[in-house]
Every structure is written in C-alpha cells, then in structure tokens.
Computed example of a mutant assay.
Amino acid sequence: MENKPHCLVLSFPAQGHINPMLQFSKVLQQEGIKVTFVTTLFFGNILQKLPPSITLETISDGFDNGGVREAKSFKPYLEHFWQVGPKNLENLIEKLNRTNYPIDCVIYDAFYPWVLDVAKKQGIFGVSFLTQNMSVNSIYYHVLVGKLGVPLDVQEISLPMLPQLQYKDMPSFLLNYEKDPSFLDLAVGQFSNIDQADWILCNSFYELDGEVIPSY
C-alpha cells in the first residue's frame, strides 16, 4: 500500500465555494496527497466531472432532491443541515477510515464551523478554509466583534486596514439584516470557533489583501 496523506475536502454547496476548494484540491493532489472531495448529495449529482485523481463523496443535507429550493428558503435549510450534517459527516469519515487510506485531516469551508467538532471527535486535523477574499471576511469579522453594527445606518464606513467604504459598497445582507438575518449570520458564524482550528487557509491574492491579511 502506498503511504500518502489523505485529506477530506468539504465544500459548501454553492459554485462560488466549490470552485476555490476544488482548485486547491488539485494543488494538493499534485503534491502527492490523496484527496476526497465532499459536497451534498444533491449538489454532487449536478457537479461537473472531477479529475480522475480526486474522489467524490457526498453527504445528505436532508434535502437530497433539491437542496435549498426543496427547503423553500435558506433559514430552514441551514437549520436542518446543521442538525443532520455532523452525524452524516462522521459516518462518512468512519467509512473511509475502514479503507486503506484513512482520513488524516478535514479541510472544510468555514461556513461549516461544526465540522471542526467532528474532526476533533475523530482525532484528526481540522483546517478551516475561508473561500471569500480577506477584505470581505474582514467586514464580517468586524460585525462579529461589534465594530460594525447592523443594519447599517451610516453612509461612510471606516474599518481597520480597509479603504473608506460607502453604504452602497457593503454586502446587501448587511443592509436588510432585520428582514432576513440568515446570510449574515452564516458569514459571521465562520469565526465562531476558527481560533481552535489546526490551520486556517484563505482564498486570496496577497497583492490585493496585503494590508488586511497580516492584521489577522
């Protein structure tokens, strides 16, 4: 048996999250690491074919026939997924651990903070992957620590290491938070336990975020 590390890469079921994690998976594979790419059952059925060197596995989010559309709206989708996801992921890791290539680490989309608890329970490394650029994540982080209040009620926003921002520059779900808090709560929730992760990875260009990245 060839002895190579095995990473399970778990992506949030949205194309903007799938793409950066899949590209990173290809880099890992080129470095001689075995990669198992994981998404939801519904999204896995519509995902374009992966490179043959990367294995695809799926877990159920409870809405296997339509994802968010089957759930009718985002909030009940997230609530149910967060209930069934940990056990379904744990079952998958246990299944893969019975093969010749047990899992060494889980690289998970930071939108899934609960994955870290599963990784710790299984005794493997948990690596948080921030799929959005650091400037955007910086905005979410300042909401978390209370430096930026929502819903926004000012026209100009000044945050550390970022240029002066206007009301219109901000993510839309900061503006209508009271109407639907689900999206912002998800984005801010990335940081709920990120300090406990074994590593933190960022999808970014240093040349664009060079002032923001060192501040974290």
Rank of each mutant, 00 (worst) to 15 (best):
E2H: 08
L8D: 04
V9C: 12
L10N: 02
L10G: 07
S11N: 12
P13R: 02
P13C: 06
Q15T: 00
H17T: 03
I18K: 03
N19I: 11
N19T: 11
L22I: 00
Q23T: 08
T36R: 06
V38I: 04
T39V: 04
L41K: 15
F42Q: 06
G44T: 04
G44K: 09
G44I: 08
Q48K: 13
S53I: 12
T55R: 15
E57A: 05
T58C: 11
I59G: 08
G62E: 03
G62K: 06
G62R: 05
G62D: 06
N65I: 13
G67W: 07
R69S: 15
K72R: 14
S73W: 10
F74K: 01
Y77L: 05
E79Q: 14
H80T: 10
Q83I: 12
P86T: 02
E90W: 07
N91L: 13
I93F: 07
E94V: 11
K95E: 15
N97C: 08
R98C: 15
Y101H: 15
Y101N: 14
P102M: 09
D104F: 00
V106Q: 00
Y108V: 04
D109S: 06
F111T: 07
W114V: 01
W114I: 05
V115M: 11
D117E: 08
V118C: 08
K120S: 12
K120V: 00
G126H: 02
S128Q: 08
T131A: 08
I139S: 10
Y140H: 13
K147W: 02
V150I: 05
P151G: 01
E156K: 14
S158R: 13
M161A: 13
M161G: 04
L162D: 01
P163L: 13
Q166Y: 03
Y167I: 09
K168W: 04
M170F: 10
M170V: 01
S172R: 12
F173M: 00
N176T: 04
N176Y: 00
Y177L: 00
D180N: 14
P181F: 00
S182T: 05
S182F: 07
L186F: 09
V188I: 10
V188F: 03
G189E: 05
Q190V: 04
N193F: 10
N193R: 12
I194E: 04
I194L: 07
A197E: 05
A197G: 04
I200M: 02
L201K: 09
C202K: 10
S204E: 00
E211N: 10
E211M: 09
I213V: 11
I213W: 02
